[in-house]
């Protein structure tokens, strides 16, 4: 099993960001981890690297509630991009609102929904599934 090259963490909460980064590192799956404070920052970077396939992330851990551009708006924005199906987007939120989970199902790009708090093993499973896509 080859470790994933890149994981993006898009979350406005510094504590949450720190925790996700730490957990991701502990899975030993990632070569590099990128953090963004909101959807807009991530979107700006994505636009910049869109043509450089090797720089695209394998997994995006996306928070829902964020200022400026929230998780949903980010998902709406990347609909216009032709992104590889190999990019796995996993929603990461403390929301247990049924409506959020229903809404998540509307986005084909979204493959998982992790509800905070979660442990290392949950993240490991997500990474493993993403890894199998790359094989």
């Amino acid at each position: 099993m080859t470790p994933l090259k890149t994981v993006w963490i898009i979350d406005d909460d510094p504590i949450s960001r720190f925790g996700l980064k730490k957990l991701s590192e502990m899975t030993n799956f990632c070569l590099s981890i990128f953090c963004f404070e909101n959807g807009q920052e991530a979107l700006n970077y994505l636009r910049y690297i869109i043509d450089a396939a090797e720089l695209l992330p394998n997994v995006i851990l996306l928070d829902l509630n964020m200022p400026i551009l929230d998780g949903w708006q980010f998902l709406d924005a990347i609909k216009t991009f032709t992104l590889s199906e190999n990019i796995k987007i996993c929603l990461v939120s403390s929301s247990i609102d049924r409506l959020d989970h229903l809404k998540a199902k509307q986005y084909t790009a979204v493959s998982d929904f992790l509800v905070k708090p979660f442990g290392k093993s949950d993240l490991q499973r997500v990474f493993q599934e993403a890894d199998s896509l790359n094989d």
């Binding site: 949450s16 509630n65 403390s94």
Partner: peptide, 9 residues
């Protein structure tokens, strides 16, 4: 919930 989740994590 988000604060509680942070504590636990």
């Amino acid at each position: 919930r988000s604060h509680a989740g942070n504590f636990q994590m």
